[in-house]
């Protein structure tokens, strides 16, 4: 399941930023240089796909790819 989620995240980031080559520890700001706008645009892909609203307050806690995977599993957002 984690691999599927990883692939989903990788696709979403590629779609918004054109960046590839993620690993579980990739940090969105430190490693990819994403701005808060980029991060929010990626979140929109998630919201549209799962038809949920992810509060901004939760978004800022998701620093790395693995944080997002943990969050998705916790919230039951695994049907990718």
């Amino acid at each position: 399941m984690e691999e599927n989620l990883f692939k989903f995240i990788e696709d979403a980031i590629y779609k918004i930023t054109g960046q590839k080559g993620l690993v579980y520890d990739t940090d969105f700001v430190k490693d990819l240089g994403l701005t808060s706008f980029d991060v929010m645009n990626i979140v929109c892909v998630f919201e549209d796909h799962f038809d949920v609203e992810i509060p901004s307050r939760d978004v800022w806690k998701l620093r790395r790819v693995k944080d997002v995977i943990d969050y998705m599993i916790r919230k039951g957002l695994t049907d990718v």
Partner: peptide, 9 residues
């Protein structure tokens, strides 16, 4: 911490 306040280096 909020994202913008996080220590990056």
């Amino acid at each position: 911490l909020p994202m913008y306040q996080q220590i990056q280096m």
